[in-house]
Simulated scan of single mutants.
Amino acid sequence: MRPITAIGFDADDTLWQNEQYYRWTEEHFQALLADYAEGSDISARLLEAEKRNLAYYGFGIKGFTLSMIETAIEITGGKLPTKAIGEILSIGRELLQHPVETLPHVEETLEALNGENLLVLITKGDLFDQERKLAQSGLGDFFDAVEIVSDKSATTYRRIFSKLADGPERAMMVGNSLKSDIVPAIAAGSWGVFVPHALTWAVEHVEPPSDAPRFRQIETLSDLHQILLEIKGV
């Protein structure tokens, strides 16, 4: 019996670039409010707004844009000009228009694994935006299933891997977020393979579960094949 029969992949900043576009948008947002506050203060207050609003708006561009508007109103004491609101909405829409840039070794890794394991894309965020990026990436045909979820928890991984595969114990989750991709997958009984990205949203930062027997870390996706061989005992 094979120890792993299904592999889940995160999308944003695991398969393609994502956080860098948010950083560029945040810099534009800071410039819009430069007359009211320092850039570091603007970013700190925006992050707090994002955290508050996750329970209401979820993850993704829409929630980020609404958090920018809320932050701008707070920083300006309710005196934010209507024109500035329009500009914030505009830079939020621009996030939906960035081209999809796949990360190194993604396509060849998925091609090598295709057919050997059930491949599942497991991503959170805005439904339309995630569907757009998957379509533009050209990676859709590599996956046997796509799950776009509102959040990632141990319950999420148990449900997905039990529904689509042989259960979480014979599954692996690969991603760049310890908080969303790795820690909950391991809690569900799966393997968790962490692929760090140079840019990671502050909300996703947690300590790595270094003592967990099913935790692994690799530098790029090209190293995933070797991890699978080690687990199989080859």
Rank of each mutant, 00 (worst) to 15 (best):
P81R: 05
H197L: 02
G60K: 09
I227L: 12
V203I: 15
L80A: 04
F128P: 02
M172W: 05
Y57R: 12
L32Y: 11
M1E: 07
F9Y: 04
E111M: 00
I148P: 07
S40G: 01
G8N: 08
F194L: 08
S90T: 10
Q20L: 09
N53W: 13
A37H: 11
H98N: 13
D35R: 15
L46G: 13
E74Q: 13
P209I: 12
V106H: 02
E38K: 02
S180I: 08
Q130F: 05
E74W: 03
K179L: 04
R52P: 00
L54G: 00
T102N: 14
E101G: 02
K163M: 02
Q17E: 15
G115L: 00
T25C: 15
I4N: 12
D211H: 11
G140A: 13
K232M: 10
D181K: 08
T76V: 04
T109M: 13
A202N: 09
A212V: 10
A135G: 03
A185N: 09
I186C: 08
F9M: 06
A202K: 15
R93W: 12
H225G: 00
F161V: 03
K133A: 09
W24M: 11
L46M: 13
N18S: 06
L134A: 02
F215T: 02
A11N: 01
P81V: 07
I7R: 01
K79W: 00
Y22A: 02
K179T: 03
T71V: 07
E101D: 14
I42C: 01
